[in-house]
Structure formats: C-alpha cells, structure tokens
C-alpha cells in the first residue's frame, strides 16, 4: 500500500495526469460547446481518431509538424460539419449519426493507413512529425512546481488556454450568449431573430476543431505515431466528463482531470506489477462510476423539484 501512495504523491504522477488529461479535456470542451447549443456531438471519439491519423499523414507528407496540426484540425472540422449536415439538415438521430461517424472512423482510418503504408496496425513507417514540448522559462526552475507544469507538449498549454477561451466565449461574447440561448430555449432565440441553424452548425464545427486538437495530441504529442483505435474511448469519456461537469467549464475541466488521473493511475500501476489487462479498465470503470453518481444525484434533484 505504501508503494501505491508513493506512486501517487509524486510530481511524476501529477505531470502524467496533466499529460493524459489533455486529449480528454479537448474533447470534453468540444462536447461542452455543442451541448450548450443543444446539438450534442456523439461522434467525438471517431473524429479524434480521424484527426489523429490526419495529423500524422499531413505532417509526414509536408515534413511540417505545424501543417500536420492544421491538417488534424481540418479533418476534425470537416467531419464534424458532415455530421452536422446529417443531424441538423437531414434530421438523422444525433446518437445514430454519432455511432455512424465512429464506425466510419474505425474502418476509414485503417483503410487509409493500409492504403498509405501497407500496415494495418501503426503508422511507424510514415516519417511523421511531433509537436514540440515546451520548457517554461523561470517556472521550470521552481522545485516540484517546475517538474509538474513545465516541459509539457505545446498542445497541453493550448488546452489550458482553451479552458479560459471557452469560458470567455460562452460567458463574455455575443456568440456564446446565442449558443446558450439556442440550447436552452430555441423559441426565445428564434423570436429575437437568432439563426438557430447557423449557431448549431458553428457549435458543431467548433467541437470538431477541439476534437481535432485532441486527435493531433494523441498522434503527435502523446506518442509519435498513429495506431488503430488509438482514441481508446477518450471521446466517450469526454462526453461523460461534460455531463458530470454539469455543463460548466470549470466542472468539465475538473471531471476531465479526474478521468485523466484514473488514466494516469493505470499507467503508473503497470509499474507495480499489477496485470495490465486489469489496469486497463480503470479509466472505464471510473467513467461508469462517475456517470452513475451524476445520474443518481440528478434523479434525486428532479424528484425534489417535483
């Protein structure tokens, strides 16, 4: 047991939590925006996966990590827009549409990977680029804090900035006000001339961009290659994190960190000789438990209201 706590209370563990939280956080913030507009994006998992491959492919063929990043974001944007077209315009059920995007991503990424490399497992034969890690000046020299905060991938810092950015967007800008109004009372928004379709498209597109950043982090930051199914449920975990965060930026961030910690824990416990198969279920178990606690509380509150 001692060794367990020794593992948790280290700067390494906190550093690793921040690292693995990054992709979950991106997707969860994306989920937050689209949910606020009342058009949930259930395709985040698949969109992340496609963007992860997109980043690898674009960076490998241009030799530029930055263009790779742009490519990943573009893939996220386009696939979310396609999903938006189906759900908003053709009235495809949001859940079925999301499921379809995930299937598409599962098969499509392997298809493309094989087409480009002749390998169905990983992209290791593609000379893809990695986004840089950044040492924060001054902070890096502070003991403990420096070890935790400095030296992360640039996208981790982008994610942190985006927490504030999303908060600002939703709470300070006209666009944010409209997004929230459309999600909360469509008729009210319509009655003052807000274009509901446009706002929802925008929210979906933004959630795609965020998932794209998350995907880029997976294949160009977390590791330096693409492997099949590498989003590994993070998109779904992000949906759970958004729900548990009760639609607030802070809550979403905190629950993302919680799930990130569960993920980091599973990475760390591996070092202690606990079977990796069992460890791998920790993040998913944490998600189920988190969702249940959230749902039970919600039910209680609803009952009180009635």
């Amino acid at each position: 047991m001692n060794s367990f706590f020794d593992t948790i209370f280290t700067s390494d563990f906190v550093f690793s939590t921040i690292r693995v939280t990054t992709p979950i956080l991106f997707a969860a913030l994306g989920a937050l925006i689209s949910n606020k507009a009342g058009s949930p994006n259930i395709g985040l998992e698949g969109i992340m996966l496609m963007s992860a491959l997109g980043g690898v492919v674009f960076s490998a063929y241009t030799g530029s990590a930055f263009i790779g990043l742009l490519g990943a974001v573009l893939v996220g944007l386009i696939s979310a827009s396609i999903l938006a077209y189906f759900t908003l315009k053709l009235k495809t059920d949001v859940i079925l549409g999301g499921i379809a995007i995930n299937f598409f991503a599962d098969g499509g990424t392997i298809f493309l990977l094989y087409y480009l490399t002749g390998d169905k497992g990983t992209s290791s034969s593609l000379p893809s680029k990695v986004l840089p890690n950044i040492d924060l000046p001054i902070i890096q020299n502070i003991p403990v804090l420096g070890d935790i905060i400095s030296g992360h991938n640039i996208l981790t810092y982008v994610a942190i900035i985006l927490i504030i950015g999303v908060w600002y967007l939703l709470n300070k800008t006209a666009t944010g006000l409209r997004i929230k109004s459309v999600g909360e009372n469509e008729d009210a928004a319509k009655s003052v001339g807000v274009n509901i379709m446009k706002v929802r498209y925008l929210a979906m597109a933004l959630s795609g961009v965020f998932a794209g950043l998350g995907g880029a982090f997976l294949s160009m930051g977390y590791v330096s290659w693409f492997s099949r199914g590498m989003s590994a449920g993070r998109g779904w975990i992000a949906l759970a994190a958004e729900a548990m965060g009760r639609g607030t930026v802070l809550g979403t961030t905190l629950s993302s960190i919680l799930f990130g910690a569960a993920d980091a824990l599973s990475n760390t416990l591996q070092l202690l000789g606990i079977p990796s198969e069992l460890i791998s279920i920790i993040p998913y178990l944490a998600t189920v438990i988190g969702l249940l606690i959230y749902a039970i509380n919600n039910t209680k509150k609803r009952k009180l209201k009635e």
Partner: peptide
C-alpha cells in the same frame, strides 16, 4: 420567450448585443 438561466439584461440584449 426567455432563457431561464440568463440575467434580465442578457435576455433583453440577445440578438442585438
């Protein structure tokens, strides 16, 4: 036609912020 979680001001300026 009001958004419940908004303040009065937010509801009033919605669409003409």
């Amino acid at each position: 036609m009001l958004v419940p979680s908004f303040t009065i001001a937010q509801n009033m300026i919605l669409g003409m912020e």
